[in-house]
């Protein structure tokens, strides 16, 4: 797969590009994990008591994050990450071919 693409790119350039791609990925991962931590460990556990003074419907807010909200945010986070990463792949030209190798 590696041979078929980007043959014209000089070695040095390719390495730099891979490094830049990885750095952008790490930034995105760090951002997503910060949100992941905040909604579960933050809102759901450490800050649950003060948040419980506020309500969402009749849910105390901290209780809601611990039993409902964090899970919804997790779902959104994964799709957000997948969407941004796919965009990143295309920007750096490292997306996979449409016809994947058969492993059967």
């Amino acid at each position: 797969m590696t041979e078929s693409k980007e043959n014209a790119v000089p070695a040095q350039d390719a390495r730099h590009r891979a490094a830049a791609y990885w750095k952008a990925n790490l930034r995105l991962v760090a951002g997503c994990l910060a949100v992941w931590f905040l909604v579960s460990y933050g809102f759901g556990i450490l800050l649950a008591d003060p948040l419980d003074r506020f309500h969402l419907g009749n849910y105390p807010l901290g209780f809601w994050f611990a039993t409902q909200g964090s899970i919804y945010v997790f779902v959104v986070l994964i799709f957000f990450y997948a969407w941004r990463m796919n965009r990143l792949d295309r920007r750096f030209g490292v997306q996979e071919d449409d016809a994947p190798a058969d492993r059967a």
Binding site: T2, P10, A14, G93
Partner: peptide
């Protein structure tokens, strides 16, 4: 490791 970090594989020429 460098190879698994990039979905389409590293551009060749390494």
């Amino acid at each position: 490791v460098e190879n698994i970090r990039v979905p389409g594989g590293l551009p060749s020429g390494r």
